[in-house]
């Protein structure tokens, strides 16, 4: 889906746990996530720490969208 949305003209970043799958299907901007059942969280942490972790990942994704790339890039 990331590839098709980008093909349609909207820059897209894929936050995902299984990076090899994202590479194979052709997402251009890839941000590795935490774990399959909680890509943007970690139930072992406190609510506050977990939200900080999630924010860091989303901020990384926004930076990826602001970065000029020539080819598929894992951030």
């Amino acid at each position: 889906m990331a590839k098709e949305i980008e093909r349609a003209g909207i820059p897209t970043v894929h936050i995902c746990t299984v990076v090899p799958i994202s590479r194979t299907v052709g997402a251009n901007r890839i941000v590795p996530a935490i774990a399959i059942p909680y890509p943007l969280g970690n139930p072992a942490k406190s609510n506050k720490e977990e939200k900080l972790l999630r924010r860091a990942l989303v901020e990384k994704a926004l930076r990826a969208l602001e970065t000029k790339i020539e080819e598929q890039t894992v951030f």
């Binding site: 590839k3 098709e4 949305i5 349609a8 909207i10 970043v13 894929h14 995902c16 799958i21 996530a33």
Partner: peptide, 29 residues
């Protein structure tokens, strides 16, 4: 299937473009 995912993404993109969305975050488990 890949074909379905492509179809979903095309429809969604059309929607987003007509509403002026300029960037997308996709999250996957």
């Amino acid at each position: 299937s890949v074909a379905r995912a492509v179809q979903f993404a095309r429809e969604i993109a059309k929607d987003l473009i007509s509403d002026g969305v300029q960037a997308v975050i996709i999250t996957s488990t």
